[in-house]
Design a protein around this nucleic acid. Structure first.
Length: 648
RNA sequence: GCUGCUGUAGCUCAGUGGUAGAGCGCACCCUUGGUAAGGGUGAGGCCGGGAGUUCAAUCCUCCCCAGCAGCACCA
């Protein structure tokens, strides 16, 4: 048998027979290592202890101390252990797939009766039993036909379909956790006992489509989270609890920002406090847009279907549109309108008024455009995903050769705003050409190239979403993350070659001939509603002073100080600071607690001492310490703090 | 839209086949208290909507609506 040379992390090399497994290698070093090993890293690849190594390679033996490898294996083995547990309890349940995800894993099952929360408890108990059995994990590569036959014999149709979709050149690998067998590419632990029995928890069960296809069977997906020990699991569950506390729906109620009700699903009733955030943010955006060279317009909400037919929305987007039919008494036919789901067609109408010259380009046309979309009921989520919302929308009409410069300018514009609003970090996703698209490959090449090089020139990296572009052009998406790690697309920039064509937008070039402009659809916040939701969660309700709906509460400690409190509040209001009075017949402790819970950034408490000194006792949100400062000083301080970042 | 769960006072939630309860909040009274809940009294509910079973439904069944989790969707 031929020999191969394995190089260890410390640089040492040893020779082994070709086909040696990491288990053999570990055993050759120390029996204790062989026992506690969980996997190997061979030439950078995560390697099962049972897989043979046939060539010279670098090798590292992983133990539970190697967090990344250990977490992946633990979660992956738990997926198998859970599937085994489920089939041991309910032998007729069909298994499908069970990958590792963030913080844990899931496994999709086909079973008629739904899993109940009690079932999850049963499964968890069974899983712990399996772990305690310390069953050996074993693997074999099978012949494709044998694997298919096996799963046909054992009546596992989803597995048959999986095998048939594995490319012909790939091996079909089987794994056994004890007696229980599953198709799996591996790697896995050496035995089930290597899984920490107190480091995991089954979290929830929900429907999920087979292969992510809503036309296919709906399966039941059980989610679990897993960590290397009890403490880490506890920390994770704790984090989830903390995240739930900053849910914008909860804080929206507590801070009296908005509400929603059955009669208007997916639409927001803004209360005074919430609307103050909204208008403050809008005022800020308006100033930024003016500086950024945009002109602002406003266009109709209810627009005849003729325009939507021309734009292509009627054909491609109708099921997401609110259709408004009007029987006009004296009209000969029924007028059919739609609430605008997007602003772009209306903006082209504005653009098309009068002849445009190449000298007018780029023309950046902005609108705080109120849109309505009939979103699927299951998609609605607080104020983050709604049916009525306002975009900070703009369309840049430009020449093809201006795409790159405009894109770069936009990314810089957006990142400055995100920074002002407290988001230093955001992800950029780049979606390139989909299979069905309009426009020539040559034009797509140019547009994709322009977006990519503009992103790089602005100093950002992007993640590629292959084939996810719109049919009319490639796009950039700017993504922020909420309190529990869910991503929300906020900003976007989409190149559009199609709409100017469909709505016949043009400009007169230097050559005196008509040319077609390109449109860049772009938004920074995306929608005010979603963005405010993210702001609330990101700051856990403790908005920066300039955005806080209630900035100051002036609270009397004794009622003899009421008159002075009125003076203080009036003085602050004269400086444009949002100050409220609390002269209620309550103790200062009570008032402090209530306004702290209400996330008011500054409480100014006044008793007789303050009345006499013309001072205030300042308590900042989140600080236990108070300080007494003069009225003049606090007015000056808070006046400065109340300025929006662009005015400071 | 799909699967599952949920819907009782403004909020958070108990509860029962014989039309309801707590805490907080709210109102009033007492209390003027120095930085995260002072005390008392009281008001407040078509038990999400509709139909059915029943002598009787908030409770059981069916349909609808809305919310929650996940999936799909987000051109």
């Amino acid at each position: 048998m031929s020999q191969i040379s394995l190089t260890f992390p410390d640089g040492n090399q040893r020779n082994y027979d070709a086909g040696v497994t990491p288990a053999d290698v570990a055993a050759s070093i120390a029996t204790s290592l062989a026992k506690k090993a969980i996997s190997a890293t061979v030439n950078g690849a995560h390697w099962d202890m049972q897989w043979p190594i046939t060539e010279n390679a670098s090798i590292a033996i992983n133990t539970m101390k190697d967090d990344a490898a250990a977490l992946e294996l633990v979660r992956h083995d738990l997926a198998h252990i859970m599937a085994r547990a489920v089939q041991e309890i309910w032998p007729d349940v069909k298994v499908t797939i069970g990958p590792v995800i963030n913080n844990g894993w899931y496994y999709d099952f086909d079973r008629k009766a739904p899993f109940t929360p009690e079932d999850l408890g049963l499964i968890e108990k069974k899983m712990k039993e399996i772990i305690n059995l310390r069953d050996e994990v074993r693997t074999e590569v099978w012949d494709r036909d044998r694997a298919v036959q096996h799963y046909k014999d054992s009546n596992e149709p989803f597995k048959v379909e999986l095998i048939e979709s594995i490319p012909g050149s790939d091996p079909i690998r089987m794994y056994w956790h004890g007696h229980w067998q599953d198709l799996c590419r591996g790697p896995h632990l050496q035995n089930t006992g290597q899984v920490p029995a107190d480091g995991f928890k089954l979290m929830s069960v929900a429907g999920a489509y087979w292969r992510g296809d809503s036309a296919r069977e709906q399966l039941q997906r059980i989610y679990g989270v897993a960590f290397l020990n009890k403490e880490a699991l506890k920390a994770h569950l704790n984090m989830l609890e903390e995240a739930a506390k900053r849910d914008h729906r909860k804080l929206g109620r507590e801070m009296d920002l908005f509400h929603m009700q059955e009669e208007a699903p997916g639409q927001i009733f803004w209360h005074p406090n919430g609307w103050k955030i909204y208008t403050t943010l809008q005022d800020y955006m308006r100033r930024q847009q003016e500086r950024g060279g945009y002109v602002e317009v406003n266009t109709p909400q209810v627009v005849d279907r003729k325009l939507w037919e021309a734009s292509g929305h009627w054909e491609k987007y109708q099921e997401n549109m609110f259709i408004v039919e009007v029987d006009e008494e004296h009209a000969r036919e029924k007028a059919v309108n739609a609430l605008k789901p997007m602003n772009c067609p209306c903006h082209v109408q504005v653009y098309n008024q009068g002849l445009k010259s190449y000298r007018d380009l780029p023309l950046r046309m902005a609108e705080f455009g109120s849109c309505n979309r009939y979103e699927p009921s299951g998609a609605l989520h607080g104020i983050m995903r709604v049916r009525g919302f306002t975009q900070d929308d703009a369309h840049i009409f430009c020449r093809e050769d201006q795409i790159e410069a405009e894109t770069k300018k936009f990314i810089e514009f957006l990142s400055a705003i995100y920074k002002d609003l407290g988001f230093e970090n955001f992800a950029i996703k780049f979606s390139d050409r989909p299979d069905t698209r309009s426009g020539s490959d040559e034009v797509w090449d140019k547009a994709e190239g322009a977006l990519k090089s503009a992103t790089e020139a602005a100093g950002y990296e992007f993640e590629l979403n292959p084939g996810e572009g719109a049919f009319y052009g490639p796009k950039l998406e700017f993504v922020l993350t909420d309190a529990i790690g869910r991503d929300w697309q906020c900003g976007t920039l989409q190149v559009d070659f199609v709409l100017p064509e469909r709505l016949d937008a043009n400009y007169i070039g230097e050559d005196g001939a008509k040319h077609r402009p390109v449109m860049l659809h772009r938004a920074v916040l995306g929608s005010f509603e979603r963005f405010i939701g993210i702001l609330i969660e990101s700051f856990a309700g403790r908005l920066p002073f300039w955005l806080a709906p209630r900035q100051v509460v002036v609270a009397a400690i004794v009622s003899d100080a009421d008159e002075y409190c009125r003076e203080v509040a009036a003085a602050l209001r004269a400086k444009g600071i949002r100050a409220e009075l609390d002269l209620r017949n309550e103790k200062i402790n009570y008032k402090v607690r209530e306004h702290s819970v209400g996330k008011v950034p500054v409480i100014l408490a006044c008793g007789m001492k303050e009345v006499e000194d013309k001072s205030v006792s300042v308590r900042r949100l989140g600080e236990k310490q108070t300080s007494v400062v003069s009225l003049d000083a606090i007015i000056e301080t808070l006046t400065t703090e109340s300025k929006a970042p662009d005015l400071a």
